[in-house]
Design a protein around this nucleic acid. Sequence first.
DNA 1: ATTATATTTGATCAATTGATCAGATATAAT
DNA 2: ATTATATCTGATCAATTGATCAAATATAAT
Lengths: 135, 135
Amino acid sequence: MINLKSNSFTIPGKGTTTGEIECQIRIVHLERVLQAKREALPEEESARLALTYKILGDPTRLKIVMALNNGEMCVCDLAAFLGLSESAVSHQLRRLKDLALVRPRRQGQTLFYTINDSHVAAIINIGLEHIREGG
Amino acid sequence: MINLKSNSFTIPGKGTTTGEIECQIRIVHLERVLQAKREALPEEESARLALTYKILGDPTRLKIVMALNNGEMCVCDLAAFLGLSESAVSHQLRRLKDLALVRPRRQGQTLFYTINDSHVAAIINIGLEHIREGG
DNA sequence: ATTATATTTGATCAATTGATCAGATATAAT
DNA sequence: ATTATATCTGATCAATTGATCAAATATAAT
C-alpha cells in the first residue's frame, strides 16, 4: 500500500486528485504501474483502436466484412445474404465505412462495397487463428 | 428482382420462409449472394470471432490488454493504472479471460494477469497499423 | 480460530446499441 | 417533369453494457 499526494492518478469514486486531498490507492508494484502509464498509447489513439474492434465485434457487421472479403457486394445483396432489411445493412455499412473498414464504389444507382485495405483481412485471419486454437 | 419460393432465405419482417409463402427479395447478383452463403463461416465460429473483437472493442479492456502486453500485472495495479475500482477491473478481466485473451497466474493472494497468446499482440499491432495509415 | 489482504461475484442503473419503420436523397429511365 | 430504383437518414424502443456498491470467497498472517 502506497500513499500518494497530489499526483495525476484518478481515484475511482473521487475524480482526479488535485491539491491537498490525501488518497490511498493500492499499488503493489509501482514501477509496473508507472511503466504502463509511460507506454500507454495516447487516449485518442487507443479510443480509435477500441472503436475499430468494437465495430468488427458485432455479428452482423463481421459477416458483412467477411462476405466482402470474397469480393464486392451491393447493399441489397448483402441484405439478402444476411436476412436483414436493406436499411439495417446500410446503417451498419455506414459504421464500417466511418472506420475505414469498407469503402463504396458507385455504379449508377448501385453502391458496391469492398474491404478498404489489407489490414482488415489480416486482422480477421489472426482472429480466426486465435479462436481456432486453444480458445 | 428475383422471386424465391420456399428456400432457406430469411425475410426481414417475416422470419424464415417455409412452405408455400411466396416472397420477394431483391437480389441483384444471385451468384454473389450464393457464394457468400457458401463461404460464410459456421454461425458458431463467426459469433465467437465477433465476440472476441467486441471484448477488445472497449477502451478499458483494450487498455488492460495493451498494458499486459508489456508484462504481467496484478488486479490492483491495473486498477491504479486505469483509475478504476478493483471490482471494475476484475469484471473486465473475467471477460478477457473467458475469451482466452488473458490468463492469470496466482502468487499467494495476488493474481498476475498476462496476455494469453501471441495472436493477441498481433491483432493489436495490425489494428494499429490500420488506424495509423489512412484511417 | 481470528484478522487482514486480494480478488471475485451478483445486483443495480444509467447509457449505449441494433433492428425497424417512415420518410428523405440520389441516380436513372420514360 | 414524373416515376422507379437503390440507398440513406432520423426517430423509436427493447435489449445489452460498464461501472459501482455491498457482500462473498480465497489465501496468508497472527
